[in-house]
Simulated assay, not measured.
Amino acid sequence: MIKIRKLSKFIKYQQPLEIDNLDMNKGLIYSVLGHNGSGKSTFLKILYQITNYDKGDIDINGEGFYEDIVHKYFAYNPQQSFFLRGSLKDNFDYLYKYSKNDKLLSRDELNNLIKEFNLNYRLNTDVRKLSGGEKAKAQFIRTLVLNKEFNLFDEPMASMDFKTIKLVEKKLIELKENNKTVILVTHDFSQAKRISDEIIFMENLRFIGKFKNKDFFDKLKQDLF
């Protein structure tokens, strides 16, 4: 479980990002919704310790919130994919050669994902020559391979085609079915309605609330936000 209490992050020339009280359980898909600038991506960066926060407390599975705890439990799929120089295969190989994570998916599972996402014919391609959609697929696969309990996705499908989006949604649901937690930042309210158990709604750097899927969309329909 992730527990957040009285969290504040000061942002220059803006009001602080504030999350008063938020719990996230295992085995659920949470969609983080809100307009641009509402703090959604910053929220994920705080959870992955890319960005510091100024006040409050975060606790992961009752073990605190330290670098080792974050690396133990979290995988993070950023908006912008980052790769090492070399081929796509080199980048996947790097994980298995240097990662200290003993829970990585097997090579066979990786190869199956590569085939599912139709990247097998691009393995020997320099990553700099991959399209935006191909890079997004590779980043998503790399996140799955880490096989973590909490999975943070920041707009992972922004540059994907419709067929790939459906495959990604299927994989997110499979994570949930394996009792893993998905925290998905998305602008796609229809997608959130399709696959989410709960909605985290943010506006103007404020956490408005956490809602059951149906409750959120009923309120949205009634224009209560």
Rank of each mutant, 00 (worst) to 15 (best):
L167M: 14
I11T: 08
L152K: 01
E116T: 12
L144N: 06
S41H: 05
S131D: 03
G64P: 09
I60R: 09
F83L: 11
D188P: 02
F189Q: 05
F207H: 12
S99Q: 02
I58R: 08
I29E: 00
E203I: 04
T164A: 12
K26T: 09
F153L: 11
S87Q: 04
Q15R: 14
G37H: 05
K171C: 02
A158E: 14
V182M: 12
R194Q: 09
D93V: 03
G132S: 07
M1S: 15
H35M: 07
Q191N: 13
L110I: 11
K6P: 00
D154L: 00
E169R: 10
E169A: 10
A138P: 00
L175V: 04
E149H: 02
N118I: 01
A138S: 07
L205C: 08
K26F: 09
N112V: 03
S38F: 04
K129R: 11
R206L: 11
E63H: 12
F225D: 03
K170H: 13
R122N: 07
I58L: 09
Y30L: 08
F140A: 06
N91H: 06
K193A: 13
K129W: 07
L17C: 11
D102I: 05
A136S: 15
K115P: 08
D154R: 00
T164D: 11
M202K: 07
Q15A: 09
Y73E: 06
Y96S: 05
G86N: 05
R107F: 07
S196Y: 02
N204Y: 14
K115H: 12
K100F: 06
F153T: 04
I69D: 10
Y96I: 04
T143H: 01
Q191H: 10
K210E: 14
K72N: 08
F150W: 04
L17D: 10
G86S: 06
D197W: 12
N111R: 02
Y73P: 06
L44D: 03
K221Q: 05
I183N: 09
L33H: 06
S190E: 15
L105C: 06
A158F: 09
E134W: 03
V70F: 01
Y30C: 08
K166E: 12
M160G: 04
G62N: 10
Y30G: 08
N120R: 00
